[in-house]
Each structure stands twice: as structure tokens, then as C-alpha cells.
């Protein structure tokens, strides 16, 4: 499923520049160690973390985008860094569980 389609269906807020790409699955964790060991490329990463070092982890694994849940405000320096490295950051007021449920509802699953 295309990233733009997911954004439209779930009304996700786009915080960075965006390049549409294929999303293969969903990964949920708030630990960068978990991203390093278990995330897959083209995954959508659901997290509450907003630190700049999330960008370096997303970029390393080449994930499709990160979605910051629970309406957490992403700092401007994280957004600027993400734009420099073509990392897509989205946000939503939904909790991680609510968003995961909605993603399953539109046909996405863990890879």
C-alpha cells in the first residue's frame, strides 16, 4: 500500500517533505535498539519518540516513515534533520494501539 494512501485514509499529519513510497508493514517500538535489530525497510514505524536520533535510525534501516503517536509534538530540529535526509515524519493524535488497529483495518500488518 502506498504511503500517501495510508496518510489519506487515516488523516495523518505530514510534518516533513514527503516522497510517496510503498509501505510493506508496520513496526512498533520506542527503543532504537529494537529498530536496529528488528525493523524492516519500508516499514511504517509507530513510536512516541521524537528525539533527533530517531532520524538516524530510520535512515539507516530505510523505513518508509515514522509516525509519532499520541499527539506528541515533534521538535523543529528533528523535522529539519529529517528533511535533510529524506526521512518522512507523520503524526497523529491516536495512541499507538489505536493507530495500529486502524492500520490493520486498512490491510497493513507486521512484516
Amino acid at each position: 500500500m502506498k504511503l500517501q494512501e495510508i496518510i489519506d485514509k487515516l488523516d495523518l499529519k505530514i510534518l516533513t517533505n514527503i516522497e510517496d513510497k510503498e509501505v510493506e508493514g508496520v513496526f512498533i517500538s520506542d527503543m532504537l535498539s529494537d529498530v536496529m535489530t528488528s525493523a524492516k525497510p519500508d516499514d511504517l514505524w509507530l513510536t512516541v519518540q521524537t528525539h533527533t536520533n530517531t532520524v538516524s535510525a530510520v535512515n539507516l534501516i530505510d523505513m518508509a516513515a515514522m509516525v509519532v503517536t499520541q499527539g506528541k509534538v515533534v521538535p523543529q530540529n528533528t523535522i529539519e534533520l529529517a528533511n535533510r535526509y529524506h526521512v518522512v515524519i507523520l503524526s497523529t493524535p491516536y495512541t499507538t494501539f489505536e493507530l495500529a488497529t486502524k492500520l490493520v483495518g486498512i490491510g497493513l500488518k507486521a512484516t
Binding site: 520506542d30 527503543m31 532504537l32 535498539s33 536496529m36 512516541v48 519518540q49 521524537t50 528525539h51 533527533t52 536520533n53 532520524v55 538516524s56 535510525a57 539507516l60 499520541q70 499527539g71 506528541k72 509534538v73 515533534v74 521538535p75 534533520l81 493524535p93
Partner: peptide
Amino acid sequence: AEVIKDIDMLCLTAPEGE
């Protein structure tokens, strides 16, 4: 450089609207 490590990750911003 941005070090990939699980520290200083505490989110200090309150959710929007709160």
C-alpha cells in the same frame, strides 16, 4: 553526529492541545 542510542529519549513536549 546523531548517535543511535537509547538515552536522552524522554519526550519533553506535551501532546498538542494539552
